[in-house]
Structures are given as C-alpha cells and as structure tokens.
C-alpha cells in the first residue's frame, strides 16, 4: 500500500529536501519502517528507543491524531496521507 507522507522542515534534510514522499506499508509502523529504509535516520527523532511514538511528535492520518486511532498499529490504506508534525512546546 502506498501512502503519502508529509514531512516537517526539520526532517526534510534526510529526504533530500522533499516536503512530501511516499512510503509503503499496511500499518503506520510499517510505513515508518519503510521510510527509515529509504531515508536512514529520518525516524530517529520520531520513534523512541523502545519503538514507541515520541511524546513530542504528533502524527496524523488524514488529519486524525493517530494517538486516538491505534497509534503505530493504525492501519493505513492506499492513498492515505500521513503528516508528521513536531509539537510546539517549551518552558
């Protein structure tokens, strides 16, 4: 299944500057794994060391926050759009 992935500026350097790329997978986790294979290092700050979703990274599937869907196990369909959006936060 091919999905569109919208990248935030901070991750574009891993993808040769592209704002949108495509990746394969049937779940969000598989999509991110495919992304990492194509662009090594791109998910380093998206996933935690134990393979969870980083607390300060928001991921949307067609504008729905995946934390309210199935997090990384959320199924994706052909043509879906995954948006990766870092939190705006600080102290």
């Amino acid at each position: 299944m091919a999905v569109n992935v919208k990248l935030p500026t901070i991750l574009r350097k891993h993808a040769g500057g592209a704002a949108r790329v495509t990746a394969q997978g049937s779940t969000l986790r598989e999509v991110l794994e495919d992304l990492e294979r194509s662009y090594p290092g791109i998910t380093k700050n998206v996933l935690t060391e134990d393979g969870g979703l980083h607390r300060f990274i928001n991921v949307y599937l067609n504008d729905e926050d995946v934390r309210y869907l199935g997090s990384l196990e959320t199924p994706v369909a052909e043509g879906d759009t995954v948006s990766i959006l870092p939190a705006v936060a600080g102290g």
Binding site: Y60, L85, A87, A89, G90
Partner: peptide, 14 residues
Amino acid sequence: VSYRLDPKEQLRVF
C-alpha cells in the same frame, strides 16, 4: 513554567 500547543489547534492553524 512550560507550554505546549494543543496538537489539534496546532494542526488547524498550520
């Protein structure tokens, strides 16, 4: 001592 945007509101404004 800290702030964090509401992710939903953030996405809407983006």
